[in-house]
Design a protein around this nucleic acid. Sequence first.
DNA 1: TCCTTTGTTCGCAAATCTACGAACAGGATG
DNA 2: CATCCTGTTCGTAGATTTGCGAACAAAGGA
Lengths: 99, 99
Amino acid sequence: MSIKSVASENQIRLARYAKAMGHPVRMYVLDLISKQSCCYSGDLSEELPIAKSTLSQHLKELKAAGLIQGEIEAPKIKYCLNKENWKEAQQLFKSFLGL
Amino acid sequence: MSIKSVASENQIRLARYAKAMGHPVRMYVLDLISKQSCCYSGDLSEELPIAKSTLSQHLKELKAAGLIQGEIEAPKIKYCLNKENWKEAQQLFKSFLGL
DNA sequence: TCCTTTGTTCGCAAATCTACGAACAGGATG
DNA sequence: CATCCTGTTCGTAGATTTGCGAACAAAGGA
């Protein structure tokens, strides 16, 4: 029997979002994107002291968690919030935190 | 140069809290405690399909992140929210999510 | 005192995460 | 076409996380 049979769907989704937010680099990216609506990974790569391959992996994880989405704007990629899921995350955290 | 020299204090704290929330078991526990103000780990142990040593580790992590605190009520231990840090977390998430 | 109850710590294994550089892919541009 | 620019994927290494059972510690009750 797994934890998934005991925890609620919302708890599991919340844990998924929280996990994606659980790293300073990803938090930095999310915070930036949520404040300015979008950004380019090239810019991030210049600001952050990590290899671009590492950044790419973090962005991939944020995408996999559904928090952001990338849009090709050749030759760059523009990253924005995934608005639908962001709303869900807002709702879930709000309810969980009792806000 | 580390990410910590680039990310803000708030981003780092938020990432820390989020990381602690980033597992279904811990999310389950936090959700329960926040709704009923406190609980006993023995009860959790019965509800959750994990070894008590594993549960103990998860509780330890939540304590280390500052989200909960334990109070001995012999022979059991009563876990409650760490209200001070919970408030901070509420504030940080609220601001981050734009609520 | 001995036993039970409660929970932690230890030692271990498997899985996941974090990070890097090298190699690669796909568009623009000369 | 050859080259540059962007970003991803691959292979690898080391650290951390997750999970278990066994052993241990502390405190209360028989």
